[in-house]
Nucleic acid binder design. Structure first.
Length: 255
DNA sequence: ATGGCTTATTGTATAAGA
């Protein structure tokens, strides 16, 4: 099965890119972040016509997450249980016996911002919830925009980013806590090119100069680790006209 | 140098992203 995650920065704008990519890459499951639309505007019909089921939770202007799947989707969970959150950042479901968690982790804006505190609280809540999810579903994937570059090699210029969000020690410690639950960064299970990134700033010709960050990830549980057969970042959609600033991250499982 | 783009909003500037 082929899984992917993609922050589309408005599904309203990016639907043609998503439909084209589904047709070309033919993933079994695609997790989206930043749909930026209320559920009533979500393109269920267009996705169904393309052969995909979909579940979504969204809001106007900000956030919004969806799971798109060729296979039936069951046991849908929206948002983190017992965590009061007005922002629509999580949707989880079971597909072919695999628990799929799609998350849009907060950006945090700046280390001295209230949004940064929200990000850390949010990560703590995610960690607590995933602990119980893993107990119930040993076969689990956590896909999404983490807004965390786990290591210096995931940042185009670590020296320039010292003291910034995405790379700070508390964020990286939170990422490590997720790994400590028995999760693995699937991208790093395989040999990868240096300077592999999943996001590039629209400004300063960031993509052309490869001034990027690897902040979109697919973590796999212990039970799925040995089934991973391929992991890569597909840069093609980032080269299109009017692209999202993120590009799809892909994992293939041999089951 | 805190900018540079891009998105959405009942907009004609602002907030937010990363």
């Amino acid at each position: 099965m082929k899984f992917a995650t993609w922050n589309v920065n408005s599904l309203n704008v990016r639907l043609p890119h998503v439909l084209d990519w589904l047709n070309e890459a033919k993933p079994d499951v695609l997790c989206l972040q930043e749909t930026k639309q209320e559920d009533i505007k979500f393109p269920y019909q267009a996705l169904q016509d393309a052969g995909y089921h979909a579940v979504h939770i969204g809001q106007k202007t900000y956030n919004g997450v969806a799971i798109i799947s060729r296979h039936p989707i069951t046991d849908i969970q929206r948002n983190i249980p017992n965590f009061d959150d007005e922002q629509q950042r999580v949707i989880a479901a079971t597909i072919n016996g695999i628990r799929v968690v799609c998350a849009y982790i907060p950006n945090g804006q700046a280390l001295d911002s209230d949004k940064y505190q929200y990000k850390l609280r949010w990560l703590t809540a995610l960690h607590h919830w995933l602990k119980s999810e893993l107990a119930q579903h040993p076969k689990l994937l956590l896909l999404g925009d983490y807004n965390i570059a786990p290591q210096d090699r995931d940042c185009h210029d670590p020296a320039a980013w010292v003291g910034q969000v995405l790379v700070s020690e508390p964020e990286r410690a939170a990422f490590q806590q997720l790994l400590d639950l028995g999760l693995h960064d699937s991208f790093r299970l395989f040999e990868q090119a240096e300077k592999s990134f999943s996001w590039w700033d629209y400004r300063m010709a960031g993509f052309r100069r490869n001034l990027g960050m690897r902040i979109d990830h697919i973590l796999v549980s212990d039970a799925l680790k040995t089934h991973c057969s391929e992991a890569y970042i597909d840069k093609a959609p980032r080269k299109l006209e009017r692209p999202s600033d993120h590009t799809p991250v892909v994992l293939t499982l041999s089951c």
